[in-house]
């Protein structure tokens, strides 16, 4: 087990290294640096001014070297621009003498966001907390609902309950967030509903039922249908198993069969699916957060990407890899506990 986790961690580091290098390479293409220069300097800069800006701000030199600086294995750049000492590791007002030589992620420095004008670590922390709240409430709403719907539908395959609940889950899964979200916002304003708000900007300062219901519902409904379908499939399979039939022949009541015999086995497959929802939620929030103006991780990602904010995007990709691989690890380990026939080695 220990070796398995270690291997997984190693794999995680390797994935991060590869992914960040790809992101770094894409964001450091010449055209992208020009975009950066124009958003940071001024939109009306001439080509010479752009080149000057790129040189003055340490974006010249080899790309591998700059990637090394970001990792913290190559000394940070230093430059004197018109008498002012500038450098990667220099904070406002520092001179060459009192700045550290290396400042990369190995030194715990995740860099500075050029668009949001703050330390990347602070931004990621604030924004991820906000998204965390959203994901928490989505999970609280989505998982129980999905399991109940799935189990109810799968209990008696082909019954009226099964058909109607299946239709419901298919409809919700088939409606992407950008459709359901817009419909919700439209409904709120068209019917003049006052106890729900079509914008969640105020939820960043304080969550209320009014400002948080719609974003949570938009995300939860989409994921719910999918998990419910999985649960239903797994449940119907279990319900046709030999041991269920034996139990029925022995005269065990239907309620007891479902609760005591079927449920545990039927939940193995949905468990993996639920864990898979975490990375999906992290990308799904991009749409919902933009739609409802809730400025969390998804919104940060959009800002970083549209402004070519190199260091912010790199850290976002680290977070993404972390979330995906950690939830997969939990899912694999959890699987062992749910299904004793499986063993990790």
């Amino acid at each position: 087990m220990g070796l398995f986790i270690l291997k997984r961690l190693g794999l995680m580091l390797l994935t991060m290294l590869c992914l960040t290098f790809i992101v770094f390479w894409l964001t450091n293409l010449d055209a992208k640096l020009e975009t950066l220069a124009k958003t940071q300097g001024s939109a009306r800069m001439t080509d010479t001014e752009v080149q000057q800006w790129i040189a003055n701000n340490g974006y010249d030199g080899s790309m591998i070297g700059r990637y090394g600086q970001w990792l913290g294995i190559v000394p940070g750049w230093t430059k004197e621009v018109r008498g002012e000492e500038r450098g990667r590791c220099l904070e406002q007002g520092m001179t060459f003498a009192d700045a550290p030589t290396y400042c990369g992620i190995l030194q715990g420095d995740f860099g500075y966001s050029t668009v949001l004008r703050d330390d990347v670590s602070t931004i990621i922390k604030t924004r991820l907390t906000l998204t965390g709240k959203l994901m928490f409430w989505v999970m609280i709403v989505m998982v129980p609902m999905a399991l109940i719907v799935g189990v109810l539908a799968g209990m008696r395959e082909g019954s009226r309950t099964d058909r109607s609940l299946s239709v419901f889950s298919i409809v919700t899964t088939a409606t992407p967030e950008y459709v359901s979200g817009v419909l919700f916002i439209f409904a709120v304003s068209a019917f003049g509903i006052k106890w729900l708000k079509g914008s969640a900007a105020s939820a960043m300062d304080g969550l209320t039922f009014a400002n948080f219901t719609l974003p949570v519902l938009t995300m939860a409904l989409y994921g719910m249908g999918y998990i419910a379908r999985m649960t239903r499939a797994s449940m119907t399979e279990v319900m046709t198993a030999q041991y269920i039939r034996t139990a029925r022949l022995k005269g065990v009541s239907f309620g007891n069969i479902v609760m005591k015999h079927a449920l545990r086995n039927a939940l193995i497959a949905p468990f993996t699916v639920i864990m898979l929802q975490f990375p999906w939620l992290l990308t799904g929030v991009v749409i919902v957060e933009t739609l409802f103006n809730y400025k969390g991780f998804g919104w940060t990602l959009v800002q970083g990407a549209s402004n070519n904010d190199i260091e912010l995007l790199l850290s976002c990709s680290i977070v993404a890899v972390l979330v995906v691989l950690v939830t997969q690890l939990i899912s694999d380990i959890g699987y062992v506990f749910l299904n004793p026939r499986i063993r990790v080695s």
Partner: peptide, 19 residues
Amino acid sequence: FIDLGTDPAAWVAGAEADE
């Protein structure tokens, strides 16, 4: 100063939500 992005539809939603 509250930034609700560039989509005017979001501004209307924000106005109705008293943002």
